[in-house]
């Protein structure tokens, strides 16, 4: 067998399984929306908020399961409620926003773990699947739900792009120019919550922050405009999810962590070698080996 055929075979072999088709479809969609929505978190310095929302979805998910409602709906509602409470604490008391996030998300997370641990004894529900993802277990219904969420999120970002750009760059200037910044902020929170909910099955609530932040951050070191960050970030997100899945298939790694390790490695490459900002090759930084030497501890000082 020629090399080309071997590569093609390597590529197509997993696709003959329906479960791999479903998981790859979900992984690709999640790779795209996480990168696009996560770009807003990164430029607004709200990475921690992504973490807060993702940890906060757990109790909603558990309650929805108990009530027999779609768990995506419950998780989404809990995520949104957490942002409202964070905002409330932050504006109505001298507590800073990061402290408010820390308090709220750990409280929600603890409640979620308690609820799920209690109900998983009698039901077929596994806490680990939500914490670390269970992409190989996605159903046709999950694929459909993820597709609906992805379509909604991408459409909203496309239609509100210019308003969200102004707001995320200069909220005061946008508000003073007559934009409804409270509404835009709320819309952004909803988009983040939807994205987190769609990503639960892929990487789980603990690692979703990586998919939200790392692709955009990787792209940010390479291109200068927000829409370019989003597009390149989406490509990086898809590349990471797909290669993570293949790693997981061939090397038998847990798929969520495999995806996160790939995207983190891509970030590391960008950090070191980006022509614009790379630590080793960035502009006005001398040649790579000289740069490398400056990173090492110097002798005798």
């Amino acid at each position: 067998m020629s090399l080309e055929l071997a590569v093609l075979d390597w590529f197509f072999e997993p696709l003959q399984f329906a479960f791999m088709q479903r998981s790859l479809a979900v992984a690709i969609m999640v790779g795209i929306i996480c990168s696009v929505v996560g770009s807003y978190l990164m430029v607004q310095r709200l990475a921690l908020l992504g973490d807060a929302i993702s940890h906060s979805v757990l109790p909603g998910l558990a309650i929805a399961f108990l009530l027999g409602v779609n768990i995506f709906v419950g998780a989404f509602i809990a995520g949104v409620i957490s942002t409202v409470i964070i905002g409330w604490i932050h504006t109505r008391s001298p507590i800073k926003e990061d402290a408010a996030m820390g308090i709220v998300f750990s409280a929600f997370f603890a409640l979620g773990i308690t609820l799920i641990t209690t109900i998983q004894k009698d039901n077929k529900i596994d806490l680990n699947h939500f914490l670390f993802g269970n992409i190989l277990g996605v159903t046709v219904g999950d694929v459909r739900d993820t597709a609906i969420i992805a379509a909604l999120v991408l459409m909203a970002v496309f239609l509100l792009y210019k308003e969200l750009l102004f707001y995320s760059f200069d909220p005061l200037g946008a508000q003073a120019g007559g934009l409804p910044t409270g509404l835009l902020n709320a819309g952004l929170m909803v988009l983040i919550a939807l994205t987190v909910v769609a990503s639960m099955k892929v990487v789980g609530v603990i690692l979703v922050l990586s998919l939200l932040i790392a692709p955009g951050a990787t792209a940010y070191l390479l291109v200068p405009r927000l829409h370019q960050v989003m597009l390149l970030g989406a490509a990086i997100g898809v590349l990471s999810s797909v290669s993570g899945m293949y790693l997981s298939y061939y090397v038998n790694l847990p798929s969520g962590p495999a995806i996160v390790m790939v995207v983190s490695a891509l970030f590391a490459l960008s950090f070191l070698f980006s022509p614009r900002h790379g630590v080793l090759v960035g502009p006005r930084r001398g040649r790579p080996w000289q740069k490398l030497r400056t990173l090492l501890p110097s002798k005798g000082s």
């Binding site: 430029v43 310095r45 308003e163 750009l165 760059f169 934009l179 291109v223 405009r225």
Partner: peptide
Amino acid sequence: QIDWTFPATVWDVVMMGRVK
């Protein structure tokens, strides 16, 4: 008040004036 490391060009910022 502004984060000048934001990924935007001069053109992007001036066009913000036309958003409303």
